[in-house]
Design a protein around this nucleic acid. Structure first.
Lengths: 207, 207
DNA sequence: ATGCAATATTGACAGTGTCAAGATAGATTT
DNA sequence: AAATCTATCTTGACACTGTCAATATTGCAT
């Protein structure tokens, strides 16, 4: 990949993203500085600016990779048509919170104010993120149709609320506000039970 | 309050908190700098350090006032014993999200990673915040006992999940991730319906 | 009045993101 | 092969940030 000490790094953009992701997961976003990053890569302070317009652009690129990875995981659960719908929904809930708990800094970047608050997100990031959000809605609609979630509610609103539940639990855990990470699975099961109150005791429909 | 141009400000600590809160709500936490704050108050850069150990201590103090205000609002709803329990729970949900939507920056400070992640919160703040968290649990237990929330679930876990739902919706709204603030009331009603699925159509018990 | 503690000040340091101007090297055209 | 173009990288600089150390001023208690 990278040459020894050439004037041109060779693959600086990818190297920056990878080093930044590593630093992010390890030390948190507060410690993620472009200058330190450049130093780690043996490159001048301003070199990254030839590959990213500014820090936000780099953060957006990191978040984008996170969305791509997450979508693979989500789909691999949602599309397991051999499993009962109820199992899939429960698994999805657990997977969501565990993803957040295992990549707290990345999750914060993907779903936090840093990128979304002042429209800081790059167009590239939006192009990856928005479909993920919409995917959440279509999953919700699917679960409504299979009787797992209340059917007499607008799918978009219900998706916002159920996603909000997962998001909120994830945030409470990763931000260290109140919940403890040792309670994760209990909370997931509780959330699943709350979602599927109607469904209790009924037979599990296929699909 | 403040003297004209005296060497000693007179009431600097309170002035800082008030100015900082105003700046926070107006420009966001990213723009909240101790130096600008000092300049606004006509005081040197390091003067605030005689009243707050560091920036975290100031932020903790601001958050603490937020918790005090919120607890008043929450209690004023919860203790309205003249209203049916279902109404109170619904009102509580709306009040929670509206509080967050009306004080987005303050909410972020109160319930965000800035103060809670690396144990940055002051002991003073914890002394105010933790009771608020526990209050949430006792409200949940109360609503379980009145049949509004599933009774066969551990109150602590259920509180974490229901609070998580509100927290998640609040964050999605104030962080500008997906939900739009014009959908707030719809989302609150959807959340209320999700919580009280069992309860549908049943008569509203008093208390 | 004297001394002490609270409060405020200037100076300094290390750190940040990012712009401007110039250097280098690889690719493209002539 | 030579010249030019363009992507890439560099140093220098600026305006910020939080915070420490040393110093000055003031009000209060003795």
């Amino acid at each position: 990949m990278a040459h020894k000490q050439a004037y041109h790094h060779g693959d600086l953009r990818a190297s920056i993203i990878s080093a930044a992701t590593a630093r992010l997961e390890l030390h948190g976003i507060e410690q993620l500085s472009l200058r330190k990053l450049a130093e780690d890569l043996g490159v001048s302070r301003t070199a990254p600016y030839h590959h990213f317009k500014d820090k936000n652009a780099l953060l957006s690129a990191i978040a984008a990779t996170g969305f791509e990875n997450w979508k693979v995981t989500a789909q691999s659960i949602f599309e397991r048509e051999d499993l009962p719908a109820k199992t899939r929904l429960t698994r999805f809930i657990h997977a969501y919170i565990h993803y957040a708990a295992q990549h707290p800094q990345l999750y914060d970047l993907m779903f936090g104010r840093t990128l979304w608050q002042h429209n800081n997100a790059t167009e590239d990031l939006k192009a990856v993120a928005y479909p993920t959000f919409h995917y959440q809605v279509s999953m919700t609609r699917h679960w409504q149709q299979h009787g797992l979630l209340p059917a007499d509610t607008d799918a978009l609103r219900l998706a916002q609320v159920t996603w909000g539940t997962l998001h909120g639990i994830a945030r409470l855990v990763i931000d260290g506000v109140y919940a403890n990470s040792s309670h994760i699975d209990d909370m997931c099961d509780t959330a699943a039970a709350l979602f599927m109150q109607q469904y209790r005791g009924a037979a599990d429909p296929a699909g």
